[in-house]
Simulated assay, not measured.
Amino acid sequence: MSSRFTKIYFITADTEESIQACLFDIAIDNGLGNPQDWRSGIHWLNTHEENWLIIMDNADDPRIPLRRYFPPCEHGNIIITSRNAELQNAVGQSLELWDMSPSEGLQLLVKHAVKGPLNKVQHKHAAQIAKELYYFPLALVQAGAYILKQNCLLTYSSRLKSQRRQLMERKLTQFRDKYQLSVYATWNLSWNMLSEKSQKLLEICSHLHHEKIPRQLFE
């Protein structure tokens, strides 16, 4: 794909702030020494008639006026990933992607969780874990990394249930669907294994844009 397009940019589209930060980075990456704001990125895309590609990822929030961040030009390409079905009315073409099949979900989990072939007992537990995570790719990858590190394929399911129960007892309101709860539960298991210093470092980074965090900031 990289040989087909002149430039490829990933834009985190879950908030307007993250979209604007990514557009600002586009301006910086293309030599605009003193860009005023995110509009400089839009200007560069609009004025450079190249076959660039923008991937707007996780554009799920219907309150974001996404078209505001489209360059007003005929050239270039934009791909949007979203769980907001209403966006079909804002784009030229759309394609609905279905969930992974059970066999695909199991294969993805095993790829990250185990080195070598599975025996029957391990296969049964892996299949159950994939089912409990609704075959969501991100949750499966995070669970697999945790299982590999902790060597806990046979006990992961019970740990996951315990983690979910703790999250539900907190009565957190941000979980809109099974996807968010599953991803957060698998991520939180890994978070709890980190040292206090590692957690503090990630907490600091969470206040920054996730790309190009300068080393000098910590030095």
Rank of each mutant, 00 (worst) to 15 (best):
N30E: 10
T186F: 14
R215Y: 08
V183G: 02
L194Q: 14
S103M: 06
P102Y: 07
S162V: 09
T47Y: 15
D57A: 05
L217S: 00
F136K: 00
F70T: 04
L23I: 08
Q174N: 11
A90E: 14
S18I: 13
V121L: 12
Y134I: 04
S18D: 10
R4V: 12
N188S: 14
L167H: 08
K197W: 02
Y135C: 06
I147C: 09
L201H: 07
K200V: 02
S182Q: 04
S40A: 15
P72L: 04
K178W: 05
R165I: 01
V141Q: 14
I26K: 07
I204D: 00
K124S: 14
A139Q: 05
P65G: 07
L201D: 01
G41F: 14
W191T: 01
S103A: 10
C205R: 05
K115F: 09
T81V: 08
L95K: 01
K149N: 12
K120F: 13
D60I: 13
I11N: 09
Q107M: 07
T186H: 12
L133S: 05
L172D: 06
E219L: 09
Q180P: 10
N89T: 12
V183R: 07
S101K: 06
D25R: 13
E49V: 11
K124F: 14
Q128F: 10
L97V: 12
L160V: 08
F70H: 04
A130P: 07
D37T: 09
W187K: 14
L97T: 00
F24T: 02
S182I: 09
P62T: 06
P102S: 05
G105L: 10
Q107F: 13
F175A: 00
I26G: 04
L181C: 00
P137M: 07
L66I: 12
W44E: 01
L87N: 03
Q216T: 03
N89Q: 13
W187E: 02
E49N: 15
E169Q: 14
K111A: 13
Q199E: 03
A13M: 11
T186C: 15
S82T: 14
G41H: 08
P137T: 03
E96A: 06
Y156R: 08
Y69A: 02
L53E: 00
L172N: 08
V121H: 11
L95C: 05
R83V: 02
Q163R: 11
I54V: 07
Q163A: 07
S82M: 07
A85H: 08
R170Y: 08
G76P: 08
L66T: 03
L181V: 08
L181Q: 05
S195R: 09
A21N: 10
S18Y: 11
G105E: 01
A21I: 05
S195W: 07
R176P: 01
A127N: 11
K197M: 03
